[in-house]
Amino acid sequence: MKWKGRLADTGTYVEITAEESVIRSVTEIGEQENVPWISPGWIDLQVNGFAGFDFNGEVTTAEDVIGVTNAMLARGVTTYLPTVITGSSRRISQALTAIAEACDSSEMVGACVPGIHLEGPYLSEEDGPRGAHDKAYIRNPDWTEFAEWQAASGNRIRLVTIAPERDGAIPFIGKLAESGIVVSLGHTQATTEQIEAAVQAGAVLSTHLGNGSHPMLPRHPNYMWDQLANDGLWATFIPDGHHLAPNVLKAMLRAKREKAIFVSDCVKFGGMPPGRYESNIGSDVELHSNGRLTTAANPDILAGSAQSLDWGIAAAVQLAGISLGEAIEASTIRPATVMGFSRLGRLAAGMAANLTLFDYPASGGKLHVRETVLNGKTVYLDSRRNHHIDG
């Protein structure tokens, strides 16, 4: 199979050939008319649900996993981490088992889901840093409990978000890192010393930095500055235009530079029509026409993200003033690097043939996915336009 497109970082026109799920060549060609931008398949490290499907409902089913996977592919995401959040040990275990079974039974899901993100329950119980996580289930790290969850997941937990100030968190972080699990700091009110200790123990990432925090913080020091300044930490950001004000996003991206990563943190209401919905987490919510998801009772309080990564990439370019190439890097090679996904995130011979072909006008605006390629096969194609070439 062959695809033609324009590289988002350099603007170069290329033809990419793939065989047996692997990129065989990336060849520069002359300027072409009506070809899309082309990039490695996008990677989202934090997906709670989408399109009415949920990884954090009372029961997670194979239908949820397949439904989210199809929705992600339609939006250019070829790799994502289903994110299971704070809850009872039983509910977490059930969700992990359902995701594992879907990975085993569906070739498509198995190809898209290289691991699971466990966000909680070892987080701050303080209002603000806790975010929407249920305080009743917040607790200190327990290695026996975690080992049971890892067994339930089929050893698929690859990323864990933890608050390093919890009792026992620092040695727990060390054990996770020694086990090859990526450790991220999040939903925390840790001190400078606790953050540094966590990094020394093996933490390498901050989860949706700038969110999951107190509404009011000391001018300095505080846990946001500490994480922004720590060169040992990468950081994920939610660039949906709602979670971070444009100037905040711009400043944070400048601080983290090549260690900034974009995530959607999308929930089940993403991709659904505007309106009011019942939520299993927190109170009823309202999805507004501008894409903002809030509690129904108070439109000033966010109830999660309702946007997928394609929206975030476009929003970051427009709101933070970064280039399209940098936004794509933050959604491809950077998450692949921090997670150790060695065959993902780059367009080069020998890499997985995961591609996203999309339109994005020079004047800015909405990003439109034309085609998504997973392991050398087209898995989503805009029915109005066909851009790959059989060869």
Rank of each mutant, 00 (worst) to 15 (best):
E258Y: 04
N56H: 13
I313D: 03
N34S: 13
D127N: 14
N48V: 01
A353E: 04
E15D: 07
D104S: 14
W42E: 09
T356C: 09
L209S: 05
A330K: 14
M272N: 01
Y380R: 11
Q46G: 02
K377I: 09
N34G: 04
S206N: 02
H214K: 07
R130L: 03
E145T: 08
A198Q: 06
S206H: 09
E19T: 15
I23D: 00
P164M: 00
G202S: 05
G325I: 15
A235G: 13
H208R: 03
A18E: 02
F341W: 11
A251P: 04
M216R: 15
E15M: 12
Q227G: 12
I85C: 11
S279V: 01
A95N: 09
V373N: 08
N375Q: 14
L123E: 03
M351Y: 13
W149L: 08
M1I: 10
A316I: 12
D226P: 09
L381E: 13
I43H: 03
A260S: 09
P121M: 04
A74T: 06
S279C: 02
A111E: 12
D265N: 07
N247L: 15
R334T: 05
F262D: 01
I116R: 11
T161N: 05
F341L: 14
T294M: 00
S184T: 10
N375T: 14
R24A: 06
K256D: 05
R75P: 07
R276A: 07
G186F: 01
A152W: 13
T295R: 08
A151D: 15
V14W: 01
S213I: 15
I23V: 06
I92C: 02
N290G: 05
W143Y: 08
L176P: 08
T191E: 04
Y277E: 00
